[in-house]
């Protein structure tokens, strides 16, 4: 099956600033693909080139087999877009927006009222846009992005500015989109969001893609370190821990031990060591690397900086 999105060596500049350069990747049908990176890394520019809203200076893009620049109206019929920091008319009512959007598409579309119901907006159908909360606005934008029953959905910084509860609710909605067989392309600067939501991610910084893979593979490849922190009064513990394979360091302060090593088996090995030597522990926890650590490792700075 050909990829849903194929991006090859795309470059886009604004004056003297190079926004994205040599960006290449492919998105497969039915996956949630995340473009992750700090603000200003080129996420939105890349996404808007794919959506046909911007024209790249160089490179080739194919979306659903169409050229997003020459076939922009054909493409818009088949995709759904949620833009970062978009607004609607202040005094447009929720149902009017859905009704208007539904009238813009040629093809069959889904029932707007049902969509509002699914997104928990049915109580707000007569509310003005300006009176909606941040989470409600985002859900309305998701509704508008889904109104034409698109094959491919674009979500740009979907949960920025939302509280954790609203964020989780939106994540469930996005998973729901995937389970209906659609492809989702999203950008985020929230590593937790990427980790929990995306099947595959591309890390972008300074307009260039650094690596692409599943979140787990990225972590395994770039951050194999594992850390176990435990507390025990056993005097011989430190000696025993040092004999575990692939342990790099054991440090101890008071009765708390920190065991650093590499590989997925480290935690199991530590537990085995504890049980074989009948070491009694009063506390036990693991510190596992995540995408945040991958980003730090690859770029030398935190994504929040």
């Amino acid at each position: 099956m050909p990829p849903v999105i194929q991006v090859s060596a795309v470059r886009k500049t604004y004056g003297a600033t190079v926004a994205v350069d040599e960006v290449s990747f492919a998105v497969n049908e039915g996956e949630i693909f995340g473009l992750i990176g700090p603000n200003g890394a080129g996420k939105t520019t890349t996404m808007e080139c794919i959506e046909g809203l911007r024209t790249p200076d160089r490179g080739a893009i194919s979306v659903l087999g169409l050229n997003p620049f020459s076939d922009v109206y054909k493409l818009q019929e088949r995709i759904g877009i949620q833009l970062q920091e978009a607004q609607l008319q202040k005094r447009i009512k929720v149902w009017e927006a859905v009704d208007l959007w539904a009238s813009l598409y040629r093809k069959k579309r889904i029932d707007g009222e049902r969509l509002l119901e699914q997104l928990g907006l049915i109580d707000k159908r007569n509310a003005w846009f300006m009176n909606l909360s941040g989470g409600q606005k985002q859900r309305l934008f998701i509704a508008l992005a889904l109104i034409n029953d698109p094959e491919l959905v674009f979500l740009d910084e979907l949960t920025t500015g939302l509280d954790p509860q609203a964020r989780r609710a939106i994540w469930d909605l996005v998973r729901g989109i995937r389970s209906r067989g659609k492809t989702v392309f999203l950008t985020t600067h929230l590593m937790e969001e990427a980790e929990r939501l995306c099947d595959r991610v591309a890390i972008i910084e300074h307009g260039r893609i650094i690596d692409i893979d599943t979140p787990q593979s990225l972590v395994n490849r770039h951050c194999p370190e594992r850390t176990v922190v435990l507390a025990t009064d056993d005097g011989s513990a430190a000696e025993r821990f040092r004999t575990i394979p692939r342990v790099d360091a054991v440090t101890c302060s008071d009765s708390q031990f920190t065991i650093r090593g590499r590989g997925d088996d480290l935690v199991t090995e530590v537990i085995q060591c504890l049980s074989e030597n009948r070491i009694r522990v009063t506390d036990f926890r693991t510190i596992l690397p995540n995408l945040e650590d991958v980003f730090l490792k690859l770029t030398g700075h935190s994504i929040r900086d």
């Binding site: 959506e51 809203l53 109206y73 818009q76 019929e77 877009i81 833009l83 978009a86 607004q87 609607l88 008319q89 959007w101 813009l104 598409y105 040629r106 508008l144």
Partner: peptide, 9 residues
């Protein structure tokens, strides 16, 4: 708002 309207047919 114009931009959002433009991201449709």
């Amino acid at each position: 708002i114009l931009k959002r309207l433009r991201a449709t047919p």
